[in-house]
């Protein structure tokens, strides 16, 4: 997959990442100036910036570890763009998987065709525009939308959302589980590590463990997969 890491693809990601930075710059400048007029002190503004900057480092490194899975499957440029704009590992991986699965592949399979790869890129791109469109056109109307949604059904929303997520990820992981022992081991261990870490994070109220949970689960799952492949072998 030389195309996936080609110079052209790197170049193609620059415009959209620039828009993200441009928006951040425009908003920052305006918030800084208007903030002063609203009576916020220089100290408060600076401490807001500094805290945002510092707090971002830990989670960003955690995202970087999660990005490994995307780099290995869809290449560096697309992974970078998808995680700098719109996405998160939890959305981009399944979206890419749904793209290549149209051709009967799984992500990371040997000899994925260029067409299947391109379909994964389209799938992530088009799937991600939903959030952009809703936020671009809907943000000024959010307050009203919230009130409308609050008509007694709001208790059902987290349940339906979680059920959609669970159904989809159940489909993804059964695809992996039926592939072979190493994949099944990786799924099981990834899930167990996540459960244990989240439990510790809850009990001790440690936010940084929550940030690192996915990255750690991934790495431990990787090693278990390799260990099983070396000892038991691939397939079932």
């Amino acid at each position: 997959m030389d195309i996936a890491n080609s110079r052209w693809l790197w170049l193609s990601t620059l415009p959209v990442v620039s828009v993200v930075l441009l928006q951040a710059a425009i908003f920052l400048r305006r918030a800084w100036n208007d903030g002063k007029e609203m009576g916020l002190s220089d100290d408060q503004l600076r401490s807001g910036f500094k805290t945002g900057f510092i707090s971002a480092i830990g989670p960003a490194v955690a995202v970087l570890v999660g990005m490994l899975a995307l780099i290995a499957t869809v290449g560096g440029p697309v992974a970078w763009m998808r995680l700098s704009v719109i996405g998160s590992v939890a959305f981009e991986l399944p979206a890419a998987e749904l793209g290549v699965s149209q051709f009967g592949y799984g992500l990371g399979d040997e000899g994925i065709t260029e067409t299947a790869y391109a379909t994964a890129v389209w799938s992530m791109t088009l799937g991600g525009t939903g959030w952009l469109l809703v936020s671009a056109l809907g943000t000024p109307h959010m307050e009203k939308a919230r009130q409308k949604l609050g008509n007694g059904k709001e208790k059902l929303i987290p349940i339906i959302s979680s059920a959609a997520m669970l159904g989809a990820f159940a489909y993804f992981l059964t695809g992996e589980v039926t592939t072979g022992t190493p994949e099944a081991g990786s799924v099981a261990v990834g899930g167990l590590v996540m459960l244990v870490l989240l439990r510790i994070a809850d009990e001790r109220d440690l936010q940084w463990i929550r940030e690192w949970a996915l990255g750690v689960a991934m790495i431990v799952g990787l090693f278990v997969g390799v260990a099983l492949q070396v000892t038991v072998g691939g397939g079932w």
């Binding site: 999660g66 490994l68 939890a90 991986l93 990371g108 669970l166 994949e183 099944a184 990786s186 899930g191």
Partner: peptide
Amino acid sequence: ALESYLVPAVFGAIFAQFGRDYPKVAAVG
């Protein structure tokens, strides 16, 4: 290994994250 075994671990982990709140729904799914 990176191509094959990172992705299943991510799927397992996110499934577990949501399944924690709704174990019965996770089993059904």
